[in-house]
């Protein structure tokens, strides 16, 4: 009963706050990695280099799909902004279904920018179907295709260390976010700009996505406070011997 209730409350809050956020813009706290990401988009067009967006190997059929969808929302904005560049962004995925959506998303970004004739289907790729083969294929892109920044957003495990190491060797900037704890630890240790925990899901909002993204962050905050209150309340009741 609890799960459907949480779902209904979250859905109701999302719809109401999305409508409200259309009228009042969101006020966001500073997240250095996302500020760097927004700056990188402009810089890559100016200096004629590519961005490589790795969306990880999260399957859309399980819980890891959340980070994959968040990464796709971010990719949509990046594709739109960099579509007119001489060196368009390259996207890679380690899951076949995610690979298909990556192609569709990049193409949609080009269409939205009015540059759909510039879209090249080879800019979105599935580089491997296992975590290590995916990482090995994605390393190759950063090394050989004039990439200035590697953006890893999605589901990454320890294999992210190979991408981090490759980026460091090629002097490529790296911005990383994973929904996996090991992946987060690796990205924290290996990159200057790592996103921790749910910051991954805020990328769309910080890049200027529509109001529903800002609304979902507000709902996350509300739900987080409810979880905190429930945990503290539970601990207090346990301490008092009520439960």
């Amino acid at each position: 009963m609890t799960a459907p209730l949480i779902l209904v409350v979250a859905a109701f809050l999302l719809l109401v706050i999305s409508f409200w956020k259309r009228k009042s813009p969101a006020r966001l706290r500073e997240i250095p990695a996302l500020t760097q990401l927004a700056r990188t988009l402009g810089l890559s067009i100016e200096d004629g280099t590519r961005l490589h967006i790795s969306l990880g190997h999260g399957s859309l059929l399980d819980a890891r799909g959340g980070s994959a969808f968040a990464a796709l929302a971010m990719l949509r904005i990046i594709a739109e902004r960099t579509s007119v560049s001489d060196m368009p962004s390259v996207a890679s995925a380690g899951d076949p279904a995610l690979g298909l959506l990556t192609q569709d998303t990049v193409q949609a970004g080009y269409k939205a920018a009015g540059a759909d004739d510039l879209y090249v289907h080879t800019t979105s790729r599935v580089t491997g179907l296992t975590p290590f083969s995916y990482a090995a294929g994605a390393m190759h892109i950063a090394s050989n295709e004039n990439v200035s920044t590697n953006i890893l957003v999605g589901h990454f495990g320890p294999e992210a260390a190979l991408l981090v190491d490759s980026a460091d060797r090629d002097h490529v900037n790296l911005i990383g976010a994973s929904d996996n704890l090991t992946g987060q630890a690796v990205l924290y240790a290996g990159s200057q700009d790592a996103l921790i925990g749910e910051e991954l899901f805020a990328a769309g909002t910080y890049l200027g996505a529509e109001s529903s993204h800002a609304a979902s962050l507000t709902v996350q905050d509300i739900l987080r406070w409810l979880v905190i209150l429930a945990l503290l309340g539970g601990a207090a009741l346990k301490f008092l011997g009520v439960i």
Partner: peptide
């Protein structure tokens, strides 16, 4: 703590896709 944050983010992303606010298709 991190996993609770990720779970909430996943929930909201799923709802956005379910309500067609995000359409990666």
């Amino acid at each position: 703590g991190i996993l609770i944050g990720v779970a909430l983010g996943t929930l909201m992303t799923g709802l956005r896709v379910l309500f067609a606010m995000d359409r990666p298709y």
